[in-house]
Amino acid sequence: MFLINCPYCGERDQSEFSAGGEAHIVRPKQPTELSDDQWAEFLFMRKNIKGVQLERWNHAHGCRKWFNMVRNTSDDKIHAVYKMGEKPPIK
């Protein structure tokens, strides 16, 4: 069970959070200009990395804020958390 450092609230138990999948997948500004394949790339394709991954988390049972996390999916080590819109800290 992780101990997650919410950038707004501080360290909280994992049970207060929900995971939101891979981070930095930007919704295209002009979806209508995209081909089916390009749209499918945005919609469906995820990397599912074994290793260091950037992912979205939501403090669902807390401040309800979304933020990003750098986590190693193979040993569950959380390297950093950062706010939405911020650049990922160096891995």
Partner: peptide
């Protein structure tokens, strides 16, 4: 509500 919050905070801040 969660879905709308997600869009507001992450896509359309």
């Amino acid at each position: 509500l969660s879905k709308l919050e997600d869009y507001l905070q992450t896509e359309w801040p």
